[in-house]
Amino acid sequence: MQGPDVTWYLALSAFLFATGTLGVLLRRSPLIVLLSLEIMLNGANLALIAFSRHHGEGDGQIFALGVMAVAAAEVVVGLGLIVAMARRRLTLDVDRLTSLRG
């Protein structure tokens, strides 16, 4: 393979995953927590696709497409929850959302 080998891609995916973790743990707005989760999922996707190329099998790409579908589902439910919270006039701050009520 031309260019960098799989180790470089894995290091990049580790950096992306750590960046996403930092955002999930640090930020207060649930919107940005969701965006940071997307970064984490994409870091994992990059590792899957790099290993897929490394082993010459397409299965890693199938996994990556599955992760994409699950991420889309997660975004639908997460954004639905955020909109429902905003319509109930709750503050959009994950530290203050401490009680569950039906």
Binding site: A73, E74, V76, V83, R87
Partner: peptide, 20 residues
């Protein structure tokens, strides 16, 4: 999974509408 997420999104949206 996608079907369940779509149904869940619709239910969340309609509940929020009936609240306000």
């Amino acid at each position: 999974v996608l079907l369940v997420a779509a149904v869940g999104g619709v239910i969340l949206g309609s509940h929020a509408r009936s609240e306000t």
